[in-house]
Amino acid sequence: MGILLQTIVAGLLKGGLYALIGIGMTLIMGVMGIINLAHGQMMMVAMYIAYVLNTMGVDPYFSLLVAMPTLFLLGVLIQKYLLNPLIKVDTILPENQVLMTVGIGMVLTEVIRFIFKSDYKYVTTSYSSATFFLGGISFNVPLTIAFFIALAFTAAMFWFLIKTDLGRSIRATAQDKDAATLMGINTGRITVVTMGLGAALVAAAGCLLAPVYYIFPDLGGPFTAKAFVITILGGLGSTVGAILGGITLGMAESLGATYLGMEYEDIVGLAIFVAVLLFLPGGFKRLTKV
């Protein structure tokens, strides 16, 4: 029983972080209809920002305030100068934008490797492995904080998408780009803002992950993979779906690790992904309707 509870708690806390990674991706996928295969790499960049600030004595939670705007800017620049120009170009493959994100991901990884080498870096905090116990179950403090911050960000995103003009424009663009354009929405600008927001959100995830993990240039790839699994689980463009998707993935990985074996951790996530693609195309969004 203790093992089961501990596994569930571990999965839930990790799931919160996954949700935050997924929200950014789901926004981008929903609005632009492309998968951003540089998503994890953007998180990696944010983690390096947290690392550099940390060497100057800044707490990773405060580095959120620097990393998020920086990544917002990076996302905006990428969308504006690298992705949007492709829409106008006549090409054989519509996937050119996706392929472009692969190239961007490589450039981000290699530029970081160039600057910081391949060495493992880590953020030192006094609370990295701080824990509290509830009924014999251990809770990692930074992961618990990350979980609640992730929830807060999701709530904020939800409110933003429902209540603000910009948010409504984003949703309109996600639903029907042509109609949105006809309604006078500058969809070019919307895609730019969305990419910026997506990047900022994954930057937040990176800063929250930094105290409990470590940092190296190649960490982007696996997280990109997780991000698209979450997004497909949750349904494109659905913030609530992303939360459910993130937590599902976190739980599935944890339960799989405990009851199947840790080496199956990644396979479980991928298997769920394939199952959802086949049996529940559209993801949890089909069930939750938001």
Partner: peptide, 13 residues
Amino acid sequence: VLVFGILVVVVIL
């Protein structure tokens, strides 16, 4: 590898 990445970006663009 950086050169690969830049090449991809430039070629697609």
